[in-house]
Every structure is written in C-alpha cells, then in structure tokens.
Design a binder for these strands. Structure first.
Length: 593
RNA sequence: CGGGGCGUAGCGCAGCUCGGUAGCGCGCAUCGUUCGGGUCGAUGAGGUCGGAGGUUCAAAUCCUCUCGCCCCGACCA
C-alpha cells in the first residue's frame, strides 16, 4: 500500500479527551474514529489489525473443532422472553420495534439465538457435541463507556458456544478452549492471566476471565505469588485471621458525639478498626421462592470494620438479582441509624441479616447503638444478636492471606479481554433445546459460552506495546509487517526509482508492505513510522542506495542493521520469520487452575 | 443515575470576568525554498462559536433550558 493513497491521517497532538495511551494512539495513528460515546469507525489501518486478530481467532477456534457461523444482530423479542432476559436486563439492552410494532432488540450476546438454532437442528445424541462460533457485532448500551476502545457500546466479539450431551462432555471441552484462548492472546502478543470469576447472571458452574494486566484496567484481581491462586476481587477468597479467644465482656454504651465513620470511631476510642463492626444497609431485589414475584428486601450486612463488604459475594449469598444502597428513610424504618448502625435493637422482622463469618467469631467489637452519637462496646455475636446467614461476604484485598497457601495476596488491575463460562442447561432448558439419548429419553443440551472482545483486545495490545513515540505492533497483528521509507528528493530521483522497484519486489514476494512514497521530509516520515508502529522499517536513502543497502530497524527494540538490496526480499522474509517465531515461543500448555 | 470538567476551523487552544470587526499554532491548498528525525517564507481556503429560547441597539461573551463529549463513582447477563 502506498502511503500517499492510504486513507488516514496522523495527529501530532492527541484529542484532549483521550486520556489513556491506547485511546490516544488509536486516534493519533488514524486507526479508528469516534462517532459517538463508545461507538467507533475502524479506518483502513485499524481494520487490518482487526482482521488479523480475527484470523488468529479463527485458526485457534477451528483447531478445537469450532465451526464458524454468523447470527443476526437484530433479534426478535420472543427469544429473549423465553429465557426471561428480556425482562431481567434493563437499559443495557437496546430495544426497537418494526413497522408492525413487533418488539426486537439488538444483540448484547447470542445465547438465545444460538440455543434456538441448536434446538432447531439437534434431535439426537448422535449430533453432539459441537462448537459454533462467530465474529459479530454486539451492542450494549453501557451507562458509561470509557477508556477509548476499552469499554464501548458497540463492539465486535468472537463468541463461541459449545453443545454437549452432558457435563462430562462440557468438562472435557472446557480445558481445550481455555488453552485456545491462551494461544489466541499470546499469538496477538498479549500476556494474560486467567482468573476464576463470578458466574453472575449468566448462570453456570464455572467461569474464568482472561485478564490483561494494566493499571487502566477496570477489574481488581488478587494474585498469589506463592501458589499461583488468582481470582477476580468479586469472588476472591482469603484466609481470615483467627480472632483472639477472649471472654465476652459486658456490653456498655459509649458517648461518641459526631463520630459516624469507622475511621473516626477507631481514632476517637483509640482502638484498631479491626475491633469495630461495620453495618451496611442495602436493598436487594429478590425473587420470592413461592410466588416467583420480584420484591425488594432490606438487607443488613455486618462486617468487621477493617474489611470491605463484597457486594458480589453478598448478592450470591442471598441469591439476590441486584443490590442498591438503602436510603436514609429506609434505614430509619427498620430501626437503625445511618452512621451509628448495628444489628442490636433493629426490627428483625423487616430485614435479612447477613454477618461475615469473621465478625461472628470476633469478640467484644464496637458497634453502633442505632441512635445518633452513641456506640456500644463489647458487642458479641450470639449473645447480642444473631444473623440469618453467616458466611464470607467481605472483599479480599492486597496483603490478605492466600486461601490455599497463606502467602500475602497481591492486588493488580486488569482488563477483561475474554471469558469462558460453563453455562450448563440454563438456556437449553428454558428454550427447550433437547436431544434424545440412546434410551430415547429427552435431555437438555449442556452448553458453554466463550467470548473475546476484539476491539478491547486490540486496545489492550497497544496498552502493552507502545512507547512515548507510538505503537509497537506485535508482528502477528501489525497492519503491515514492513514500512518502506523512501527518502527520495527532487535531486535524487534514482532513490525514488529504486524504492519503487523494492516496493514491487517485496510485494510480489508476498510481504505486506506499507510504502511511504509521500513527498515529506525525513523527520515527518520517521515520526509517522514510530507512531504507526510497523514492526520492520526499511529506509532507502541516497547513501544507502549507492552502497547497495537498505537500512533496517525493528520498532520493537530499536535494533538496526543494513540489508543488501540484492537479496532484500529474502533477508526481510527471514526477519519476519524470526520475529514471528519469537511470538510463537510464548505459546505453552496451560493447566486449568 | 450521583459528582466533576469541557463544547470556538480537521487537531490543540486563546477570546467570555468587563457584550461592540472571531483569533493563534499545527494540519490543509498554491508557489518558492529546504531535504536522513515534525525546514523556512509568501499567499489562501476553512467557523450556524454544540443547539433552542431570552435580555440588549448589539451576545462566543449575560440569563434559562437543552444536547453532546471526557473523567471519578454507581452499574456492567
């Protein structure tokens, strides 16, 4: 491709509202163009990267017997009503009507349509198992897109779905896609870790997220350097300290004027925060066990003062659909007082009381007295209050002990670039996707669901591979592998002629060349070269031409040398092969953790 | 949805406090100059000042409403 004909522009300065590196570079290098919050055009260079990433996905998916399909982006409401998600999902789902006033939605994901397809085709165990995948647009009307391409509303996802006759089959496939995902990310030059994750509203029994570690990530992960335990903070476990086994003291009220925070309370009384109990007031949306109707339930959570409530754990513990903070009026209505809350003296008939298992074992804590400016000393579980549920509901944090080996956990931030779920029969059962087994018994298909966001992956690669000058593309997904820079001037037409010859020669050799034939000064071309991040830069100037060489420079590490023009295509191909092989060396078997 | 910031040419910004000809740099076009890390000079094109309403002789500037974008939080099947 001739750069003089390439549809793109580089920006010397990044748009002011782009903050993170990948967002700035995506815009500055002319890879994408924003048209609305979280909605982007892919320009030719960006499109080429996207296509290369998708080709890698196809290869890896095909290697585990995936079959590519394409499902629609506009879905009839009926399918989503069958699984109930039409009603469960709120404003994140974009809905529309056709001319006959029938309801449709834009695809947020494709479990429904995929299950519907399997239902139509599968009738016998003989047809199972199989894996379908697609690379298709999703639309999720996120409340807050952010970070350029990290969190968008419209995006392309490689989503795959496995269909097995039983859980054994799913369990057998799961490690294969786990490995395939590692291969995909590593072939794209992206180092990821897999962490256990919440199955959330997707349902299912096991899930992993593939996280690219970066400070701009939205998720917090806890990692153990001792045994390799890793989990999303939403579900991370940790070994809690054993509370001191002392006698319960007599409860007494203490005057604490204006002290309505844990930090303030600890300072006021001269005690550590771990000697206090924290009350958190929430309203849960729960489904009534008998009627199946949704209702709001006041949830009173008690955790030790030095710990943070983990809302995901609490949500799962009480099987809530969602949680929101309670209002001051709602808190008062159950007999508690915000800032001075405790389980003592509240109207227990109106609340579900959930205590963390650490707070229930800790003696003589300081807790609120449920009236302004007063707290209780020596509050003890069992004697002073009891809970409906006692379980782990606090968030693991940096420094907490690993649940397996006790090593201090490390907290890092990551971007979720992929996830894999054992769905089970949630969708097949609700939609009637069944098969007949050997005995002629009808059984629901056992499913799994596996996704990778391509744009997010692309942005994450830039986050990892850039410097102050621009992008440093891994050769496997670079828009072009070679950038040929001609330093021809009006006085050196022979350089231009030679560059043309080289461009033709390399292109004919099957090398993807971007040829900077623009009438620009060397500085402009070199700066654009650094910004665009093409892995191999070939520079042809008058001096080099006279000596019969082109200058070669790797964007990755700045390594440079001279290549004889007589064997240029072979030499360049050798470098391409070596650089590609280097990425291949990162591939290795991964045991499911 | 709560908090904060910002909308003036493709990009980066000034002008707004105190109402009176819409500016600067980059980029773009033409000509010349220069030619291995964003040359230099000249000329030029490009703007409903996000939108609507109001105040005023007069609004980018003051007032009201509204739309959009970014950041923090909430949320995120």
């Amino acid at each position: 491709m001739r750069m003089s004909k390439l549809f793109f522009q580089t920006l010397r300065e990044a748009p002011a509202d782009a903050e993170i590196a990948s967002h700035q570079l995506l815009l500055r290098a002319g890879l994408v163009f924003p048209i609305a919050a979280g909605i982007f055009d892919y320009l030719p260079l960006g499109q080429r990267v996207k296509t290369k990433i998708e080709d890698i996905m196809r290869e890896e998916m095909d290697a585990i017997d995936g079959q590519e399909v394409t499902l629609p982006v506009v879905h009839p409401a009926d399918l989503w009503q069958q699984t109930g998600r039409w009603y469960d999902i709120g404003d994140d789902m974009a809905r529309l009507k056709d001319r006959n006033n029938r309801d449709y939605c834009l695809a947020m994901t494709h479990e429904e349509v995929m299950t519907d397809l399997a239902k139509a085709v599968v009738s016998s165990y003989r047809q199972l198992p199989f894996v379908l995948y697609q690379i298709q647009t999703k639309f999720r009307d996120e409340p807050r897109p952010r970070g350029g391409m990290i969190r968008v509303r419209e995006f392309t996802m490689k989503d795959a779905y496995s269909f097995d006759r039983d859980f054994d089959g799913l369990d057998a496939f799961y490690p294969r896609i786990y490995q395939a995902y590692f291969n995909i990310f590593r072939r794209c030059g992206l180092d990821v870790i897999a962490v256990e994750s919440d199955t959330g509203m997707m349902g299912g029994t096991m899930a992993h997220e593939f996280m690219a570690l970066t400070p701009v990530g939205e998720d917090t992960l806890l990692l153990c350097d001792g045994c390799g335990y890793s989990a999303n903070r939403q579900i991370a476990l940790f070994r809690k300290p054993e509370p001191e086994d002392v006698a319960a003291l007599v409860r007494e009220e203490v005057h604490t004027p204006g002290v309505n925070t844990i930090a303030g309370l600890a300072a006021f009384l001269g005690i550590p925060e771990s000697a206090t109990a924290k009350a958190v007031f929430l309203i849960a949306e729960v489904q009534d066990a008998e009627s199946g109707e949704l209702r709001e339930q006041f949830v009173f959570a008690v955790v030790r003062g030095d710990m943070e409530l983990n809302e995901t754990k609490l949500t799962n513990a009480i099987k809530a659909r969602r949680l929101r903070p309670a209002t001051a009026e709602e808190i008062r209505a159950i007999g508690a007082e915000a800032g001075y809350g405790s389980p003592i003296g509240i109207d227990r008939s109106k609340v579900v009381l959930v205590a963390d298992d650490l707070v229930s074992r800790s003696r003589n804590l300081v807790a609120g007295a449920n009236r302004p400016d007063y707290h209780f000393r020596n509050v003890n579980y069992g004697r002073d209050y009891t809970a409906d549920i006692v379980t782990d509901i606090v968030a693991a944090a940096e420094g907490h002990a690993c649940p397996h080996c006790g090593t201090a956990l490390r907290a890092v931030r990551g971007v979720e670039v992929g996830n894999i779920f054992k769905l089970g029969t949630k969708y097949s059962a609700s939609m009637g996707a069944t098969y007949l087994d050997e005995e002629g018994v009808s059984r629901p298909i056992v499913m799994g669901s596996y996704g990778i966001g391509t744009g997010r992956l692309l942005a994450s690669v830039i986050e990892h591979h850039h410097d102050e000058l621009g992008i440093k593309w891994p050769i496997t997904i670079a828009p072009y592998t070679v950038l040929l820079v001609s330093l021809a001037t009006e006085r050196t037409p022979e350089v231009a002629e030679a560059a043309e010859r080289i461009y033709a020669e390399l292109t004919q050799a099957g090398i993807e060349v971007l040829y900077d034939d623009r009438n620009e000064r060397a500085g402009v071309k070199f700066n654009d070269a650094d910004l665009l991040g093409i892995p191999i830069r070939l520079t042809l100037g008058a001096k080099g031409l006279a000596a019969g060489v082109a200058e070669m420079k790797l964007r990755r590490n700045g390594e440079s040398g001279e290549l004889p023009l007589s064997r240029l295509a072979d030499e360049v191909q050798g470098i391409i092969d070596a650089e590609t092989a280097l990425i291949r060396t990162t591939l290795k078997p991964e045991a499911l953790s």
